[in-house]
Amino acid sequence: MNLANHSHQHFQSVARPVIALGVDYPDGEVIPPHHHEHDQLLYGLTGVVMATTPQGAWMMPPQRGMWIPAGIVHEVRTLGDVKMRSLYLDPAISQGMPTTCQVVGISNFMRNLLEEASALPPEYDEDGRGGALMNLIRFELERLPPIPLSLPLPTHKRLAKQCHSFLREPGANITIDHWCDELAMSRRTFTRLFRRETGLSFVAWRQQACIMAALPRLAQGEAVTTIALDLGYDNPAAFSAMFKRMLGSTPSLYRP
């Protein structure tokens, strides 16, 4: 199902500030670049969702959410079968939310709210239970904690090529000096350029790239040891320590 058409069909004629939908997608679904007039919150019960924009990539593991502001052109890919809940909000009522894409934590309370909301008809009674439920969701949106599962991509042509090459074969043991040699840059020039283009240090970007490479494999049930060694970590403990430091939980919690 094409998400862009699906949203257009439901929202152009529905005068409600918040609409919730439940949609299932198969593994490998690709929704071509599109944008919405509404702000969007995605929540995946199962599977992994990756959204990409010209500025970077965001990966939503199972039981997490993703905020996509109105007007941002994005492509969506599913990794594994995805059971999705989507909120669409009039931007006038979601002021104060991030102006860029953001992966967020979803509390048990918010999960229950999203389940209830997705069961409502699009034209729910704004003065009844439906309206009260949607109003509560609006308050809870501001409490969603950000999760560092984004990977900004540079616009600098040579650096962008190097980053995309790394994403095809990520490795925790790749060093700044290696990239400096590849790009024929001094370490000082490289570090300044990398931070200016991505907003991150090279080490932080490399760690986030490795996490984003690991998440789909974890969601498919692969062993932590196998993933850690494939990514170039000396042992699973080193990988798990980095993972927990970045995301606040161990890799095993992301396995089915």
Rank of each mutant, 00 (worst) to 15 (best):
L113M: 14
D230F: 06
G171L: 07
L87I: 00
W67I: 07
R206K: 10
A20T: 00
N2C: 03
S249D: 10
T191F: 09
W58E: 12
A119K: 13
R77P: 10
T52R: 14
E222D: 13
A184E: 15
H178C: 11
D27Q: 01
M59W: 05
A132H: 14
A119G: 04
T189H: 11
Q9P: 06
F139R: 15
A51K: 01
R206M: 07
E126N: 05
C101I: 07
P170K: 11
H36G: 08
N235T: 08
D90C: 13
P146E: 02
E29R: 11
I176D: 11
P122A: 00
F109H: 15
Y88S: 11
K157W: 12
L253D: 14
T226N: 09
D81K: 10
V18P: 00
M50W: 12
M97N: 10
F11G: 08
E142N: 09
E29D: 15
R195H: 15
T226I: 07
K157F: 13
N135V: 01
L120G: 00
D177E: 14
Q162L: 14
V73M: 11
G22W: 04
H38W: 11
H74M: 06
L3W: 08
H178W: 14
E197N: 12
L133I: 05
A70M: 05
E29W: 12
F194M: 04
T191I: 13
L247R: 01
S13K: 08
S107A: 03
P145F: 07
F194V: 01
E37M: 12
R77W: 03
F109A: 12
L3V: 04
P33K: 00
P33A: 07
R143C: 06
H34S: 09
H10E: 06
Y124P: 03
S118V: 01
V224L: 07
G56K: 03
A209Q: 08
H38M: 09
L149I: 10
D81L: 02
M134E: 05
R138D: 06
E140Q: 08
A132S: 15
C180W: 05
H10D: 01
F243G: 00
T226Y: 04
C163R: 00
I72Q: 08
D39F: 05
A223M: 13
S240Y: 04
E123F: 09
E222V: 02
M66G: 15
F11N: 10
F190E: 09
A15P: 08
L21A: 09
A70G: 03
S201R: 04
L42V: 11
P91I: 02
Q40P: 04
R158Y: 09
